[in-house]
Simulated scan of single mutants.
Amino acid sequence: MWKTRSKLLFTAGAFISGFALIQMGMYAGQHIFGWKLDFNVFQICRSLLQNYGIGYMVDALSGLVFLTFGIAGVEAIRQCMATRAAFRRLRRMRDLPLTEALGERYRELGADRIWVIDYAKPAAFTMGLWKPRIVLSSALLSLLDKHEEEAVLYHEAYHMKHYDPLKTWLLQMCATLLFYLPVLRHITNHYKIAREILADNEAIKRTGSPMGIGSALLKLLRMTPANAHLVNFAACSSFAETSINYRISRILDPQQEPVIRLPWRSIMLSSYVLVMLTLMFALALM
């Protein structure tokens, strides 16, 4: 169920975001490069605004389109720079003997895909957009027993295998850019919950028990989260900073599925925005 829910959430977020951004791209291309395109929602909005004598809104519409792409470009560059800077810092902090030992123990996860850093606070996360890596702190490993260590590794390996830092960052950026479609924010939050539960499920499946992932999570919760200070603004999937209540509920009672309430207000508001665009489209064809 959670795998299906995760796919539906990502598909819905990608479809809504993709439709809006493609329309914006068509609008921008038509006015910058002179593309001859019909049935563009934003071009229809522009024509309607001019026809109804509120042409000053045309500049606002154009500003929204170009500002969206400008912010997207800046955010993409900032994310790439933050990720590179975080990896450089973490590379200097690596505990090579522990990294080699853990890499040998979990060889099936891939060569040089697990880094152990010399850090005084417990930390576990998966970071990287194109080639994600699992990062664990030496302080965390000193707290965990073998069963808990396996659970944390397999949890993070699920994020690494499915490129969760990249997917989550893309949804988060689209939710920020298209702020007037608030349902995207809720889709992103629910997607994060689904990915964490699926990663927990993978750890439980690989270790054969929920005890390891549960006790490791509780140990990390007692400590102050330090991941934000380690990676700054780089996209990552953190072991103990997302959807804690849902995960604890499921670990304590695997038979009880957590109930996620639909954000009806945001759905209605976003639907209203889309309906208004559709009406503008219909009026323009009359």
Results as ranks from 00 to 15, higher is better:
Tyr163Asp: 15
Gly110Val: 09
Gly73Ala: 12
Pro165Arg: 03
Leu64Ser: 15
Asp112Val: 09
Met57Cys: 15
Ala139Ser: 14
Asp164Leu: 02
Cys45Phe: 11
Asp95Asn: 06
Tyr52Gln: 03
Lys161Cys: 09
Met81Gln: 07
Phe69Gln: 12
Asp95His: 03
Lys167Gly: 03
Phe69Gly: 06
Ser47Leu: 09
Leu109Gln: 06
Ser138His: 14
Ser62His: 09
Ile44His: 13
Ile77Trp: 10
Tyr154His: 13
Ala85Tyr: 00
Glu156Leu: 06
Thr126Ile: 09
Ser142Ala: 07
Arg107Leu: 05
Glu104Ser: 13
Gln43Asp: 13
Met81Thr: 04
Ala101Leu: 11
Leu136Glu: 05
Leu166Glu: 08
Tyr106Cys: 07
Arg113Glu: 07
Leu136Asp: 01
Ser138Thr: 05
Glu75Cys: 10
Gly53Thr: 04
Leu96Ile: 12
Glu150Ile: 05
Arg78Phe: 10
Ile134Arg: 01
Lys121Ser: 05
Ile114Trp: 04
Leu49Arg: 14
Pro122Leu: 13
Tyr52Thr: 05
Gly53Met: 06
Arg46Leu: 10
Thr99Glu: 11
Pro97Cys: 15
Arg88Thr: 14
Leu98Asp: 15
Pro132Arg: 08
Phe69Met: 07
Arg92Thr: 02
His159Ser: 06
Lys146Phe: 07
Ala72Cys: 13
Leu67Thr: 11
Gly63Arg: 03
Leu49Thr: 10
Thr68Gly: 13
Gln79Ala: 08
Ala124Phe: 03
Tyr158Asp: 02
Met81Leu: 08
Ala72Asp: 12
Tyr56Cys: 07
Asp145Cys: 14
Glu156Ser: 00
Gly53Lys: 04
Thr126Gln: 05
Arg105His: 12
Trp130Thr: 03
His147Arg: 12
Tyr119Pro: 02
Leu48Phe: 07
Gly63Ser: 08
